[in-house]
Amino acid sequence: MSIWARVLLASMVVFLSSCQSDSKPSVTIYCAHDRVHAEQILDLFEDETGIRVDAIFDTEANKTVGLAERLRAERGRPRCDVHWSNEPLRSVRLSREGLFRKMPSDLGAAIPEMWKDKSGLWCGFAGRVRVLAVQPTSPAGQWTGPVSMKQLTEDQWLGKVALADPRFGTTGSHLAIIRSMEGEESYLNLLQGLQLNDVQLVSSNSASRDRVLSGEAWIGVTDTDDIEVVRRRGESIGEVFLSTDGDVLLPNVIALVKGSPNPTEGEILARWLLSSRVEELLAASSSRQVPLIPGTSVPVGGLSIEDLDPLVIDWDDAADALPAAIQEAERYLLDR
């Protein structure tokens, strides 16, 4: 037998042996939350319960979209037990397509109703806020007073605003919420203003923040967690809340997949994730999530829901607006 044939045979043996599974109970989760943060939490669950967690994480640039598509494609025979989305609108759409099952009523019982689906198909927890990352030494760093998205269309910010690809992740959701709450005309005016102001389109929220760090942009529309990650690494970056618009707080979302292979373990994991303890862990992590359960402790420097003025969002309306918001954003901002 030649050396190459031996290498091939050995490859086959090692590969097949690596596919063996153990008999421990397990649960599969599709997770769109940042891997570095979610992995620690899932490891803790595994240590405490003895249930093995098989996780698949989304990529930052495709946030929520890749795994949502995978759930759709696997609809006939799901592999996933729990879907952890990092924003609610795609979960609303998936729940309408019949991919989720009703959650037991005790799951996330402490979480206020405004963060849950009315039919009990999904439940939000620990969220992040849409904010502006600003370059402290630029004119945007001297910003005082209330701020709104519309101000980004002013002449003084020409070519100095960075925005993540509006079709993916929380940016798409943010735009859909604006469209659903302010109406089509106002939304199109905003897009037109951003287009005329030569907004810099980048691949993700973290890239939007990085443009601000490098000085290429003075303002980057992003999430609070993206700012906190670099602040903890010693970077100097400002954070401005969109107080005129109201704080767009996008919770993480847990849903149980209909017809999943491990329903019991799925419920155990979902119950664990929707606990106050996990919210505390997420609030203390560098993702600086905002706990939704009243009374959950927030570390110094963290964000508490009591300090915010979260916008009351009709998630169903916003989810309805998502396709049009994305297509219009594509037309105005990408096809210019």
Binding site: D34, R35, D54, E60, G66, R70
Partner: peptide, 24 residues
């Protein structure tokens, strides 16, 4: 890999891709 890898399947490139955005 993102769409078809079985849960728990090692994929260093995908992991790297995910780490890139966190400035780790």
């Amino acid at each position: 890999t993102l769409l078809l890898a079985p849960p728990g399947h090692p994929s260093p490139a995908l992991e790297l891709h995910q780490l890139l955005h966190f400035r780790n």
